[in-house]
Design a protein around this nucleic acid. Structure first.
Length: 798
DNA sequence: GTTCTAGAAC
DNA sequence: GTTCTAGAAC
C-alpha cells in the first residue's frame, strides 16, 4: 500500500483538511460498494454523499449533494461523492468545493462495461433504480461520454481500477488510512488512457513528421467510446454465409500459377467448433445504438496437409483499411506488390492475409490480384479467422503475427490491436514497452513474444510485429485528407517495414542455428525453441543469405540517415542498427563550442584548478556546473578520443572501473556527511557534453537547475545507464548497448520511486520532495544505488 | 549544456 | 493575468 506514514510538512498539513474522494464510474461499476467497503474498515470519519438517496432516501439534486459535502468537510470529515461523475463538467463543482476545503482524489472504477451492465441488470431495488433491459442502453450511453479525470482538473491523486483486484487494493488503501496518514499525490494504476502529460509526445511526433498517426488521437478519445470488450449489443450476422454459426473455415486461395490449381474454398467441415469465440466487435462511434456486428467466425482445421508446420509464416491483417478508411482498391494493390517483392527475396516462407469476415472485400480483392500476378498460393494466401486463434481454431500455424498497432503501442482501441493485446496478455505489453514507446506511421516494431504469453504456448507464435499505417479517416484527427500520394507511400512503407521485420526474424533465427551448431549449445534450448529452429533450418538457406546480405548492403549504402529514416531500421533491429548508427554518429558528431568544456578540462586540468576537485592520471573529478540534485559530480575520463559511451571498447573496461571506483569513493564520502542521501552512478546514452563522463548524482533531485523533462528523463529513464551495468555488459558482451532514443526524454513525468505520473516539472518536484516510497527493486539490485551502510543492510534484508 | 522567449495552457 | 514548455541561439 502506498501510504506515507512518515509524511510530514505540506502533504500532511493538506491531508488534515480532509479528503473528498470523487468516485468515477458507470452504474454497476461498484461505487456504492466501494464506499461501504472502505467505511466498514476505516477509522476515518467518512461520509458518503449519494445523489440517489440524498432526498430522504430518494433521489435528490446535485445542489443537495454539494451542500452535504460542504457540511461534512467543514466538520472535518472525509467525503465520498457517490455519483457517476463520468464527465468533467459533472464533477467540476465538486472539485471546486473540495479544493477549497480539502484535498480531492478521484477513484476511477473503470471496469468492463459488460460487467457493469450485468450487475445493473441483476439489481432489484437498487438506489439508482437502473435494472433490467434498460441497463445496457444507459451504461453504454454514459460510457460514451466518459472523460477520464486529470490532475489538471484539480485532483491531487487519481487511482484507476480496471479489475476487481485493483478495486480491492484501492479499498484497502483508503480503508487502512488512519487520521494522520496521507496518500502520495499523482496518478496510479492508469494503463490505458491518455493524460495531459502525454501532450509532449504528441507534439514531439507532430514536429517530427506530419500525420502524427490518427491512431493515437483516436486513442485519446477512447474515453468517449467503448472499448472492444465493452461492446455487448450484437446484431445478428449480416451475411448469410456464416449464419449458421458453425460454418467451416474458408480459405480463399487463388490460382496456383505453375500448376493452375483453382480457387480452393472450403466451407464444409467435419470438426465443427461451436460458439462465437472468434467474434470481434469493432469500435463504433455510436455505441449502444449502432454497434457494428460481426459474423460468427468458426475456423476448422483442414484434414489435408495444406497448413504445413514447417514453413515460417507471417499472418497479417490488412493495415489501415478498417478504421483508417484507406481505399481497399489501392491497399490491395500495395499488399500484392509488397508481397511479391518479399517473396522474390525470401523462399520457403509463407505470408497470410487474415480478416475476420467471410465477406471481406480486401481478402477478395487481394486474392484476385495475387492470382492475376500469379503469386504462388503456397506462399501467399488469404485466410478468414481470428488472428489470435489461427492455430487452435484454424489449424494454421503462424510463427509471427502482425498487429495493426496504435502509435503508443498500447492495448485497447478496437479491432486487431485490442484482440492481440488481450490474447497475448501482459507479457506482450511489457515486451513491447522495453523496445519502444511509440511508433510512427509506416514503421514496424518486432517484439519477441515472451514464453509466458498464452499466444506463445497455445498458438505457437514467437513474435508479434507491430505496424502502423496511414490514416485516411476524416473522423479521426490528423488524417491525410485525400492525399493518397502520401497515404500510399506510407502504406507501402508500412508493409515493407512489416515484411522486413519478418525477414529480420528469419535472419536472426538463421544466425542462431548457425551459432548453435558451431558452439553446440543446442542442449540449452528448450523444446519450443528447438522446434522453431528446426522449422527455420528447413528454409532456403541460399535465399536467406541473399536477403541478409541485401539488408546489410542497403544499410551501408544509405550512409548517414536523417532521423526519420533511422527510426525505421532502429525500431526493426534496434541493437544492430543502433550500434552502427552510434559509431557513425560518434565519429562524425560535431560538438558545439559550449560542449567542449569537459574536454578542455580533461585535457588540461592544470589550467582549470578552480573547477576540479580531484586530478588523477586517468580521470578528473568536478562538481557539475548545473547540478540536478543536492550532490552531483562528474568523473571525467582523460583519455583522448573518448567522447562518449558509444566510443567505449573492451580495452576501456579498466578505465571505466577506475571511473566507477573514484565516483563511488566520492559518493561514500558524501554519505558520511549526510546519511539521507542515496547515489546513483551512470552515463547518459547520448551526452550533450564531449568527453566521456560519469555522473555521480544524489537521488533527491532537489535542485533549481532541474528544470525540464529532458533533465528529469536523462537521469531517471533507461537513457541513464548505470555504471555497474555498463561495466558488466562491456566485460561480458564486449560492447555497451545504448538507449539513446530521444523518445526516452519526452515521455510522461513519473516519480522515480513510486512511478506516479505528474503533469509538469514543478508538480513532479513537489511530489518527489515528499514521496516516501522505496526505490524500485531493480535499482536496489546489483549495487546500482549507493546507500549509507545502515540502509544498505536494510534493503538487502528486505 | 544554458538562456531567452513565444506562445500554449491554465 | 501567471505558469510552464519547448524551440532557437549560443
Amino acid at each position: 500500500m502506498d501510504v506515507d506514514p512518515q509524511t510530514t510538512t505540506k502533504e500532511q498539513a493538506e491531508e488534515k483538511k480532509g479528503i473528498m474522494v470523487i468516485l468515477v464510474g458507470a452504474p454497476g461499476s461498484g461505487k456504492s460498494t466501494f464506499c461501504q467497503d472502505v467505511m466498514k474498515i476505516s477509522s476515518r470519519p467518512w461520509v458518503r454523499v449519494c445523489q440517489d438517496t440524498i432526498g430522504n432516501g430518494k433521489a435528490g439534486t446535485k445542489v443537495q449533494c454539494l451542500a452535504n459535502a460542504a457540511t461534512a468537510l467543514k466538520e472535518g470529515k472525509d467525503v465520498f461523492i457517490d455519483r457517476c461523475n463520468l464527465e468533467r463538467e459533472q464533477r467540476a463543482d465538486f472539485l471546486k468545493l473540495g479544493c477549497s476545503l480539502g484535498n480531492v482524489h478521484a477513484v476511477v472504477l473503470d471496469l468492463p462495461a459488460k460487467l457493469c451492465i450485468s450487475r445493473c441488470a441483476k439489481r432489484t431495488g437498487h438506489e439508482g433504480n437502473l435494472q433490467g433491459g434498460k441497463a445496457a442502453m444507459v451504461v453504454n450511453r454514459m460510457l460514451q461520454k466518459k472523460e477520464l479525470p486529470k490532475l489538471t482538473e484539480g485532483f491531487s491523486r487519481i487511482t484507476y481500477c480496471q479489475n476487481e483486484n485493483e478495486v480491492q487494493a484501492a479499498v484497502n488503501t483508503y480503508g487502512s488510512l488512519s487520521l494522520l496518514d496521507s496518500l502520495p499525490s499523482g496518478v496510479f494504476g492508469q494503463k490505458n488512457s491518455e493524460s495531459k502529460v502525454q501532450l509532449g509526445i504528441m507534439k514531439f511526433l507532430k514536429k517530427v513528421d506530419g500525420p502524427c498517426s490518427a491512431a493515437n488521437i483516436s486513442q485519446v478519445s477512447v474515453g468517449n467510446k467503448l472499448h472492444n470488450e465493452n461492446n455487448i449489443a450484437l446484431h445478428g450476422p449480416e451475411s448469410g454465409v456464416a449464419s449458421s454459426g458453425n460454418a467451416g473455415a474458408e480459405v480463399k486461395d487463388f490460382e496456383h500459377a505453375p500448376s493452375g490449381n483453382v480457387v480452393n474454398e472450403v466451407t464444409d467441415c467435419e470438426h465443427t467448433l461451436s460458439g462465437n469465440s472468434g467474434n470481434e466487435v469493432k469500435d463504433c462511434d455510436n455505441v449502444g445504438e449502432k454497434v457494428k456486428d460481426s459474423e460468427d467466425i468458426v475456423m476448422v482445421p483442414r484434414e489435408d496437409t495444406c497448413f504445413s508446420d514447417d514453413v515460417p509464416t507471417l499472418a497479417f491483417p490488412s493495415i489501415s483499411t478498417a478504421d483508417f478508411k484507406f481505399s481497399i482498391e489501392k491497399a490491395s494493390d500495395i499488399i500484392v506488390d509488397q508481397v511479391q517483392l518479399f517473396l522474390q527475396k525470401y523462399h520457403n516462407v509463407r505470408l497470410v492475409l487474415v480478416d475476420l469476415s467471410h465477406s471481406s472485400k480486401i481478402l477478395s480483392l487481394v486474392s484476385s490480384k495475387a492470382s492475376q500476378k500469379k503469386i504462388d498460393t503456397s506462399k501467399f494466401f488469404t485466410f478468414v479467422g481470428d488472428i489470435t486463434r489461427l492455430y487452435s481454431q484454424g489449424g494454421l500455424h503462424c510463427n509471427v503475427i502482425a498487429n495493426a498497432a496504435n502509435w503508443r503501442l498500447k492495448p485497447g482501441g478496437g479491432g486487431v490491436n485490442a484482440a492481440i493485446y488481450s490474447a497475448a496478455g501482459e507479457a506482450l505489453e511489457t515486451a513491447t514497452k522495453v523496445r519502444a514507446g511509440s511508433l510512427m506511421p509506416g514503421k514496424a516494431l518486432v517484439v519477441p513474444l515472451p514464453k509466458t504469453s498464452p499466444l506463445f504456448s497455445t498458438e505457437g507464435i514467437t513474435h508479434v510485429i507491430h505496424v502502423l499505417g496511414p490514416n485516411m479517416n476524416p473522423m479521426r484527427p490528423n488524417c491525410l485528407g485525400n492525399d493518397y500520394t502520401k497515404g500510399c507511400r506510407v502504406l507501402r512503407e508500412a508493409y515493407s517495414s512489416l515484411f522486413e521485420g519478418f525477414g529480420s526474424i528469419l535472419a536472426d533465427q538463421n544466425k542462431l542455428i548457425h551459432e548453435s551448431n558451431q558452439e553446440q549449445v543446442l542442449e540449452t534450448k528448450d523444446q519450443s525453441e528447438l522446434n522453431l529452429m528446426k522449422q527455420f533450418s528447413l528454409t532456403d538457406q541460399k535465399g536467406k543469405r541473399e536477403c541478409v546480405n541485401e539488408i546489410e548492403m542497403s544499410k551501408k549504402c544509405k550512409g548517414p540517415r536523417k532521423e526519420s529514416e533511422s527510426d525505421n531500421t532502429e525500431l526493426l533491429n534496434r541493437d544492430d542498427d543502433r550500434s552502427t548508427k552510434k559509431r557513425d554518429e560518434s565519429m562524425s558528431k560535431a560538438w558545439g563550442a559550449w560542449a567542449q568544456a569537459l574536454y578542455n578540462i580533461a585535457m588540461h586540468p592544470d589550467k582549470h584548478k578552480n573547477d576540479v576537485i580531484e586530478i588523477l592520471d586517468d580521470v578528473v573529478v568536478l562538481h557539475d556546473l548545473y547540478p540536478k540534485a543536492e550532490k552531483h559530480l562528474l568523473v571525467v575520463a582523460r583519455a583522448a578520443g573518448l567522447d562518449q559511451l558509444a566510443d567505449v571498447r573492451p580495452e576501456h573496461l579498466h578505465l571505466l572501473r577506475s571511473m566507477h571506483n573514484v565516483g563511488l569513493k566520492w559518493a561514500e564520502k558524501f554519505l558520511t556527511e549526510n546519511e539521507s542521501l542515496v547515489f546513483r552512478l551512470g552515463y547518459h546514452s547520448a551526452p550533450s557534453m564531449r568527453q566521456l563522463h560519469l555522473h555521480v548524482i544524489s537521488q533527491d533531485f532537489d535542485s533549481k537547475h532541474l528544470k525540464n523533462k529532458k533533465h528529469w528523463h536523462s537521469f531517471t529513464s533507461p537513457f541513464f545507464l548505470d555504471s555497474v551495468d555498463v561495466m558488466e555488459e562491456l566485460s561480458k558482451q564486449g560492447k555497451v548497448t545504448l538507449n539513446n532514443d530521444e523518445r526516452y526524454l519526452t515521455k510522461e513525468l513519473r516519480c522515480h520511486k513510486c512511478r506516479s505520473a505528474h503533469p509538469n516539472i514543478p508538480r513532479l518536484k513537489t511530489h518527489i520532495s515528499n514521496c516516501q516510497s522505496p526505490f524500485p527493486a531493480a535499482l536496489l539490485q546489483n549495487g546500482r544505488l549507493v546507500l549509507p551502510p545502515n540502509k544498505l543492510s536494510a534493503s538487502k534484508s528486505s
